[in-house]
Design a protein around this nucleic acid. Structure first.
Length: 293
DNA sequence: TTGCAGGGGTCAA
DNA sequence: TTGACCCCTGCA
């Protein structure tokens, strides 16, 4: 069948999508935007998202999504993998200089995932001053303790917990999950979100600056974490999350001197405009994998 | 083996 | 503007 230009077929326990472009599983998952995935020995990726577990296999220009069906593709994965966006267009707009050209080539299969807002809030609070393997571990521990069990391929997985579950947790629970000093931020934020203190729909309506301001009212959410939440839950694309890595790469490759966060943000806003979020992702992935800095 | 620095930030003073 | 902060890894 055809869905919005994609050729999708149902097999017994999986679907096949045939005509994908700008789509590479390694680029998508390993560029630092998502935390609940695993690369398997056979080069497939297992993903926990949207209260589901799927396995993805991409070869010979075909993507197979195991443990799924056409309904889920239409209702969930099409949006999740940002399949409505033309990344060819984005890449041609971003290709303004040699540095970005290299970054685009290196991460040609990147797509910015539209991930769950609530899950992104907690995930990026945990990400502050932390490393990716550790972030993944903490999120998994929290899911194991408070999420719902799902079986797939005779293996147990856990969904990301609801706001209600985490708002009723104890501080000690998060400490046991190795969240450290972020434990109190998680609990405080879970209570606020569960009470409806802040909703995704509200942020969508706000300007980017006001959305950042609104998110920063949450404990543990500063400028960088706020930007990541907005970008990776698909709320804003004109945002340039600036961590030490991005700061360094812009300093080294563009400024050739040290620069303040404000200078870097202004540069990104003017230079890449409304798709600066994608520019950030390509640069970040390129710099990190090639150990440029 | 032990000890220490520092990390893909944020908070509070 | 600056130090403290959980936990873990890398490296003397």
């Amino acid at each position: 069948m055809n869905f919005n230009g994609y050729d999708v077929e149902q097999r017994h326990n999986y679907i096949i999508i045939k005509n994908l472009s700008s789509f590479n599983l390694k680029d998508i998952f390993e560029c630092g935007q998502a935390f609940r995935w695993r690369k398997n020995l056979d080069n497939t990726y297992t993903l926990i998202a949207k209260d589901r577990v799927i396995k993805l296999k991409h070869e010979n220009d075909k993507l197979k999504i195991f443990n799924s069906n056409i309904e889920d593709f239409k209702n969930i994965w099409y949006e999740y993998f940002d399949l409505e966006t033309s990344y060819e267009d984005i890449k041609s707009k971003l290709k303004k200089d040699d540095i970005m050209a290299k970054a685009l080539k290196h991460g040609e299969g990147i797509r910015i995932l539209n991930q769950d807002f609530w899950e992104m809030i907690i995930s990026f609070i945990i990400s502050a001053n932390n490393r990716i393997p550790m972030i993944m571990k903490v999120i998994n521990e929290i899911s194991k303790k408070f999420g719902e069990k799902i079986m797939f391929d005779e293996e147990v997985f856990y969904t990301f917990p609801t706001t209600e579950k985490l708002s009723n947790a104890k501080l000690e629970d998060f400490k046991l999950c190795k969240a450290g000093y972020r434990s109190s931020y998680i609990l405080d934020t879970a209570k606020k979100i569960n009470e409806g203190f802040l909703r995704k729909e509200d942020l969508v309506r706000l300007s980017t600056k006001d959305a950042q301001k609104s998110l920063k009212r949450l404990m543990g959410v500063g400028p960088k974490v706020a930007d990541c939440i907005l970008l990776f839950s698909g709320i804003k694309k004109n945002i340039f999350p600036t961590d030490v890595w991005i700061k360094r790469i812009v300093e080294v490759l563009y400024f050739e001197r040290e620069a303040s966060l404000k200078e870097i943000n202004n540069f990104a806003e003017e230079y890449y405009g409304d798709i600066s979020g994608l520019a950030q992702q390509y640069l970040f992935y390129y710099a990190r994998e090639n150990k440029i800095i």
